[in-house]
Amino acid sequence: MIRFDNVVLQYPQAPEPAVKGVSFDVPPGRITAVVGPNGSGKSTLVRALLGRLPLASGQIMLGDRPLSALDRRDVATQVAVVPQREEPVFPLPVPDYIALGRYPHGGPFSGRNAEDRAAIATAVQRADVAVFADRSTDQLSGGEWQRVRIARALAQGGQTLVLDEPTTFLDIAHEMAVFELLDALAREGQGILLVSHQLNLVARFADHIVLLHRGRIAAAGSPGDVMRGEVLERVYEWPLVVSRDPAIGAPVLVPLRGRGSR
C-alpha cells in the first residue's frame, strides 16, 4: 500500500510547487486513478515515486515506512512503475526485456534463480504475452508493447503497479485490452495506481478517482462522486455534460461545442 500524505513537490527553478499538498491512498486489490488536465501534477507524482524528484514536504509512505528512508532497490521490489515513455534504442528479445524486471532482486553476477524464473513465468502468463516470446521489442505494435512493458513490471513482483498514461497512443481494442488486464490484476489483489487522460474509461474501471487541478485535489472518491459536470467543467475549463451510459450505467463525460457562444 502506498500513502501520499500531504505531498508537496516543486521542480528546481519553478516559481511555485507543481503539487501542493496532495493526500490519498493506493490500497491493494483496487484501481486508484489520478486524473486531471495537462500540467495538473499527475506525472509529477509518478516522478516522485520514482525518486527522481525530492519531496519539498509531506511524506510518501510505503507500508509503514517513508519512501525516503528506503533503498531504491527495495522500493523497486515493492512498487513497479511503467513510465510514460520508453523506447529502447537497442531492441531486445522480449523474454530478455521482461527478465530485466528481476534486476532489483539480483547482484551484478547472479544468474536467474528458480524464484526469478517463477516470477517471470507468472508475469508472462498474467499479462498474456507468451505469444511474443520469439519477437524482439521493435517488432511489437503499440498495444503489444504496452502489455510487454506491464509484464516486465509484474516480473518485479511488487504489490503495487503504477502506470503513467498507459493507453495514450492505443486504438480502442488495445486500450480496452490494457484496462481489462488492469482490472483482472486488481481483482487478483494487485494495487494499481493509474495516471490517465481517459476519463470515461477510468470512470468505468477505477474504484477510486483523484481529480487534480493545478497541483491540488479538486475532487476525490468513487467515479460517481468525481464525475460531476460542475466539478469537471471548472477543472477542465471547458463546457461539458456528464450523462449516464445507458448500457452499463457508468458516468460518461461529453465535452460540448461552441465555447465562444456561451
Partner: peptide
C-alpha cells in the same frame, strides 16, 4: 561488472529508476 546496470540504463532514465537503479 556493471554490465547489468548498463542493460537497465539502456531502457531509459525513468524505466531504470523504476527498477531501483540510481
Amino acid at each position: 561488472t556493471w554490465a547489468r546496470d548498463i542493460d537497465v540504463l539502456a531502457l531509459g532514465e525513468d524505466a531504470a529508476a523504476s527498477l531501483g537503479l540510481p
